[in-house]
Write a protein that binds this DNA or RNA. Structure first.
Ligand SMILES: NC(=O)c1ccc[n+]([C@@H]2O[C@H](COP(=O)([O-])OP(=O)(O)OC[C@H]3O[C@@H](n4cnc5c(N)ncnc54)[C@H](O)[C@@H]3O)[C@@H](O)[C@H]2O)c1
Ligand SMILES: NC(=O)c1ccc[n+]([C@@H]2O[C@H](COP(=O)([O-])OP(=O)(O)OC[C@H]3O[C@@H](n4cnc5c(N)ncnc54)[C@H](O)[C@@H]3O)[C@@H](O)[C@H]2O)c1
Lengths: 209, 209
DNA sequence: CTGTTTTTGTGAAATAAGGTACAATATCGC
DNA sequence: GCGATATTGTACCTTATTTCACAAAAACAG
């Protein structure tokens, strides 16, 4: 059997590109074009689709609407997923204000912060004190939280999230969380992403000398 | 030969953890502890280090200062790297305000935006009109830019960055940039990261039923 | 209707990444 | 100084992921 994790990630990228194509009025797409748009090879696209039983027509390419329907099924994007955000600071605010999540079937429905000065409405999203976290998560059946608090308190807040019932955390603070295995944590470390890019820029410049 | 890309990325993580340990007063570290802090296995740590000729002492672990020196050498972190940011909107602003980059040897020295209302100082970082981009990049020898403009103009702005001399771009807008091969582009797509996390949360819940 | 072109679907090969196990060796307690 | 113990360094194995290459099918042109 084929590896799995990486394909799933690419499906999200394909989905985004396919919707773009659809908006532009296209109804069919070739593996080569989709690959280019998503930043992968054509063979990769075909193999990924074949893995999930998505088929096109030789010489005719794939039908976008079909692909999208099947991908949405695989990724279980049948409804808007409600998530919360904890830490309504600089980064948290940017995320709260971002309109792009809803287009992708996700919505930040509330934020939480320990600082009373941060409470109130941020655009459309209410910011509640931390006390409310537990009840909110339970009442609305929230499963996923975005964590944008300072590193020093991230472990602590992470634990509170878990005890409130959160099952998945998108963590922006630059530390590794120690949480029960059942909780799924994704990390986005922007400093390291930048550092990594810098490394390859240095590298490529050394090559060309 | 061992894979390469992934090791380099992990070095950055090790570096961050080692500095944390150092701050806490430790001078030595075991592969197991470092692995735990960085979120990888102990064997992985040892293998990575051995690949770069970093050695410890059997039973005595690794000396943190030594590791850091060598890692800094490998990652060429011998000076503060100056980068610029284009698109001083919600997300751009959060990044501009972030103090954490400097601690990691990187600095956003200026931002650029097409909207006159955004110009001026954002904290310590000046925001210039787009006209100034070319000159600034040339005069200060800037090599890397963070791109936080709306998706609709990202390709366009990306091209301008390249023609100004930029060699690496950290792109937050949800599109694949078509740029000359010599330019290195890293992508951070927050919506897809969140979607991906949601997928695995769904998955794990289905398993436990 | 036939030959040509294009594009899919996939087996096989290549590459990358990660895990296991254990010998080698340093340290420690006594 | 010596046996017990802990930890590294690495050879080997397993799995995951990607690329290559090409036959098969569909579409098209004439
Ligand atoms: N801003 C960025 O661009 C950026 C870049 C990389 C990483 N990060 C990371 O993201 C996180 C947030 O960064 P930021 O710049 O938004 O910081 P920030 O200080 O602006 O925001 C942090 C927010 O968390 C709140 N908070 C503090 N303690 C809390 C607690 N115990 N419970 C709930 N809320 C609490 C604060 O009130 C504040 O509103 C940090 O971990 C930072 O390292 C941020
Ligand atoms: N805000 C988020 O949390 C978030 C999340 C995911 C992705 N993104 C992506 O990041 C990018 C920025 O998002 P944002 O929320 O900060 O948007 P924003 O609208 O707040 O900021 C965009 C900024 O770019 C500037 N700009 C527009 N056209 C420009 C041009 N041609 N040249 C230079 N500057 C120009 C605008 O004046 C504005 O200041 C978008 O591509 C968005 O899809 C943002």
């Amino acid at each position: 059997m084929i590896g799995y994790r990486s394909v799933i990630l690419r499906l999200s990228h394909y989905r985004r590109c396919l919707r773009q194509f659809e908006e532009l009025g296209y109804t069919r797409v070739f593996s080569r074009n989709l690959g280019q748009a998503a930043g992968v090879s054509a063979a990769q696209v075909r193999k990924d689709f074949s893995f999930f039983g998505l088929s096109g027509r030789r010489k005719g390419g794939y039908i976008i609407a079909e692909l999208l329907e099947k991908i949405n099924q695989i990724l279980k994007k049948d409804r808007i997923e409600k998530v919360i955000l904890v830490g309504a600071g600089h980064l948290g605010n940017a995320l709260i204000k971002y309109k792009g999540f809803e287009k992708e079937g996700m919505q930040i429905v509330a934020a939480f912060d320990a600082d009373p000065a941060k409470l109130g409405k941020k655009g459309e999203v209410p910011v509640y004190p931390m006390d409310e976290l537990f009840r909110f998560v339970r009442d609305y059946g929230i499963r996923v939280a975005i964590l944008t608090v300072p590193a020093a308190v991230a472990q602590d807040v992470g634990e509170r999230l878990v005890s409130a019932g959160i099952r998945g955390i998108l963590n922006f603070s630059p530390i590794t969380l120690r949480l029960p295995e059942r909780v799924i944590v994704s990390y986005i470390n922007l400093a390291i992403e930048l550092e990594h890019l810098l490394y390859y820029v240095n590298e490529s410049q050394r090559e060309n000398r």
